[in-house]
Computed example of a mutant assay.
Amino acid sequence: MEHTFYLSTKDHSEMIDVTSILENWIAEQQIIDGIIIITSLHTTAGITINENADPDVKTDFLRRLEEVFPWKHQKDLHMEGNTAAHLKTSTVGHAQTLVISNSKLVLGTWQGVYFCEFDGPRKRKFHAKVIRS
């Protein structure tokens, strides 16, 4: 069972909580137990799991990544000018694997699944594949 999801990002850098999108799809597909792999289909956008209770975590997360990988760097040679976005994606990662139990993602109390945009705004997609147990 697999599916490609589409979304439009609004900012240059942002973290979009996709937890409910995934859980709704899992419920619609009547998946009870298994493993789900979620992957970004872009080199300048990633997937991560992080806190979803305090919105300041997303702000701090993006700010700290920008400190390490500033958007404009005089010595970058990549002609598109988005080397920082590639580095952020490689750091965050392009995919996550989670357990599904009783039709729910197994996440900690404060955790959520995020699509991380580093070169927006753009039309984006991510893919999920479930291996049922």
Rank of each mutant, 00 (worst) to 15 (best):
I47Q: 02
K58W: 05
D54E: 15
H127V: 00
E23K: 03
W71I: 11
V18S: 04
L77G: 11
A53Q: 15
K129F: 11
K72N: 11
G46Q: 00
T91Y: 13
V18L: 07
I35S: 05
V99G: 00
P70Y: 04
A95W: 01
H78A: 06
E14K: 08
R64C: 05
D54N: 12
S13G: 06
I49G: 08
I49W: 02
A128Y: 03
I47F: 02
D33F: 12
S133C: 13
T9M: 05
V106G: 00
L41A: 10
V18M: 06
L87A: 11
A27C: 09
D11V: 05
K72F: 10
I26R: 01
I31Y: 05
Y6I: 00
A84L: 04
T48N: 13
K129G: 05
F115Y: 14
Q30E: 14
R63W: 08
S20Q: 14
H78S: 02
E117W: 06
P121N: 05
N24C: 03
K58I: 10
T59P: 06
T48I: 06
I100W: 02
Q30N: 15
A53K: 15
G112K: 00
I38W: 00
W110H: 15
L87M: 10
E117K: 08
N50E: 13
Q111I: 04
L105W: 04
T44S: 13
T9H: 03
D11L: 12
E51Q: 11
S20F: 09
I16V: 14
T19M: 08
V130D: 01
T44K: 08
